[in-house]
Design a protein around this nucleic acid. Structure first.
Lengths: 238, 238
DNA sequence: CAGTGGTCTAGACCACAGT
DNA sequence: CTGTGGTCTAGACCACTGA
């Protein structure tokens, strides 16, 4: 009966989420009630509720006691503050990615922002830089550091127009489970930033420092992102 | 036996959270196991798990299958991106708040960023501005808009050094249940911003637009915050 | 009033970590 | 191996919404 080891609540979550982003459920619609979803999928209420809690947590629905689960409007900004990778977060918007520094093995910077384990320091890191375009405008300039552990052939992979999250999952069985992030508004002073994002020196950019945690124990990686927010906001729910 | 209508999982969550911020549980420590917590508090596992899920969701702990719930280090930045109000988010840091524009009834701005219901437009809003200091440095300049519905005497209240969330909860039974936010990096051009945050014209600031939803149906309010992030980052988990 | 989501119980089996 | 967290069942009672 079961095909894979994906939890039931996860399957239901993904199905409902797809229904919302595809427009089958529209803004303001009510999702089927919890009891209806139980009957439809042969699940019990706690399982159904877990799927709905995930959707509510990510802002796709709002629950209202006595009424139901209301489909929320899709956000105006770019939902990159949650766990979704950039690719999924932006959705149908025209997104392109180019690699400006191909993956290479090097040492960690001496003044690295996040704490590094001794093992990480010893093995060094895989480093690369990418620029992401939304509607053909450069919006994100991202520097990524991966610990150089059990990532065979990574440096020879092509990252253009690919989701790093998908690549890690499909080739290395790495799932991103969460992380932490620090945000600042800074002036674009580095000329590479200005060049890649096509902005003038001194223009404000949003600087995002992230630690991303995976299902492999003690395996995290890091990303530092410069965002041109003159046309797009970053969006999040809480 | 029961004293109030606070859910059990919520009580346990607050107790454990307090244990972490007060340092009773230190970074890297294991919390009591789920079964131990069940026995200690006479709860069942789903209830205990809900409390732990809340803690994990807010970044206080990391769960690891087969091991336990590990207390996470407290963040370096200001955790304002989650549901916590500024006051609770900053915790023990020296925080002061001054009111620069006292609450007053007025119309909504014509170009308001968020969509407003007809009822909201009709009744107008209560508007005020505050500046928040961390370690005696002005860090946040916040403009708040509340719908002018069932908030008796609000305009005569003193907001200095008070948590708006607490004031709303204690005086109006309003609980903040969630919300959405949009972030941008902008130049400080408005002279009020520069004055209140004590920065020069053109310096980058982080601009945060938030809609905050409450337990009263169809009652949301709005906050627009300018943050000087030169010394502090905004922190969040996902 | 009936139906909704919110909370809770008392079990069960599984996958994974450390010994 | 034991103990951990991860998933799931099959019920129960409550508070709230809308008719």
């Amino acid at each position: 009966m079961e095909e894979k080891s994906v939890p039931h609540y996860r399957r239901l979550y993904e199905q409902l989420r797809k229904g919302i982003v595809d427009g089958i459920y529209k803004e303001g619609d009510l999702l089927p009630s919890e009891n209806e979803l139980c009957a439809l999928h042969n699940l019990t209420r706690p399982t159904v509720r877990k799927a709905l809690d995930l959707l509510a947590h990510e802002g796709f629905i709002k629950k209202q006691q006595g009424l139901g689960s209301i489909v929320h409007k899709l956000p105006k900004g770019i939902g990159i503050l949650s766990i979704a990778g950039t690719t999924t977060a932006i959705g149908k918007k025209n997104l392109k990615t180019t690699t400006v520094v191909r993956p290479r093995v090097q040492n960690w910077p001496s003044d690295f922002f996040f704490a590094l384990s001794d093992e990480f320091k010893t093995v060094g890191c895989i480093y690369f830089e990418r620029v992401r375009f939304v509607n053909d405008h450069p919006i994100f300039y991202e520097q990524t550091y991966l610990p150089n552990i059990n990532l065979p052939r990574f440096t020879s992979r092509n990252l253009d127009n690919k989701s790093l999250f998908d690549l890690l999952r499909q080739n290395y069985q790495l799932e991103i489970k969460g992380g932490e992030q620090y945000l600042k508004a800074i002036e674009a002073v580095d000329e590479k930033i200005c060049e890649y994002l096509n902005i003038r020196t001194g223009q404000p950019v949003l600087y995002l420092s992230r630690k991303l945690e995976t299902n492999r124990i003690n395996f995290s990686f890091f990303s530092f992102m410069y965002c041109n927010t003159s046309d797009f906001s970053l969006y999040g729910v809480f």
